[in-house]
Amino acid sequence: MDEDLRLEAWVREGIDRYPVPDLPLRRRGEGSGRPRLLALLAAIALLVGGAGLGQALNSYRTGVASATPDPALAPLPSSLDAATVLVLVRGWDLGRIDRIDAKLVTFEEYVRIAGPVRSHAGDPQATAVGGFGISGDPAKRSVWVVAVGGELWPYGRVPIFYGLTPPTSPTPFPPYRWAVFLVDAIPGEILTVGDAGTEDSWPSAFDRLPDHRVTAPVRATPTAPLAPLAVRVDAGEAISRTVRSGAASSIIAITPKLMTWAEFSATGGPAAHRPAGIADDTPVWIIAVAGAILPQGGGAPLAWGVFGVDGRDGSMQLLVAGAGSWPSFFDGLPNHSAQVTAGP
């Protein structure tokens, strides 16, 4: 602990030593020069391009999406427009981008048309990363699907990361020729690499996706932070235990929340399944899974399940499973941050 405090003091004092120049607040419209340069480039692109060339430039160079939203589809909320999403993805260190485009869909539409998240696709030597989670109803979660074609070098393969400082030794695998990224439309942050491949040059599933219009920008509503709970099992381990249990034969979404058993009981959820003899303040990871859940008593798989993983010893059990797309009570549950102590 002393060492931590010393480190914190070193960082704070080191940063606070920086002199701050006396500069005024830049007013709106003054700009830094870059927007004017971009506007000039855009004007040149418009001048040199006919309709076909203009579209190609849009899609391939200037970062403006060539996909056209379908006016017949209901608009979806997003804090970003298509052009901004492309600029965001171009900002990551992906490699050489020959073509890029974006569509706005719900997470449910993406999974139904493109299949589950397969971030290691095309690389048989990679290890599967398991399910990928989002919170809330997949049919209501809007995501930007960004398809990229070119020569793409991931940071690592298990799982794949882009945009970080590459490892000191090069990856032994060939580059991907295309990749699909999912960007959470409300906060405007990357969710995951949806898919990637070394065959073909473009993800064919992207062309089959619908494209919704954007409603008025929506601001994410932050929730008040809750006090952290001390656990010996972190979120990754809790998810891993749930996946490895085999209780779900397929997973399209998996999301953990940390709370006490008392908080879980207080929400009016399926508290009857709480194990007997467990203290109210015992931390528990409540894991919601959408996919195919195998009922403990046998029978047809159910569409979602909620599991409890003890935050102290990692013991896991299926609490409840049901039909429909998502356990709606899960969205109302609290979520503490975890203070991870020694492992189980």
């Binding site: 914190e8 990357i190 952290p228 972190d234 979120a235 990754g236 941050s337 975890a338």
Partner: peptide, 23 residues
């Protein structure tokens, strides 16, 4: 964390990570 004294939830939100990844 050390300069702004932000909690794990804010760091996770800012960096697009889970809180476990922040740790």
């Amino acid at each position: 964390r050390y300069y702004f004294r932000a909690d794990y939830a804010e760091i996770a939100e800012t960096l697009g990570l889970s809180q476990a990844s922040v740790a």
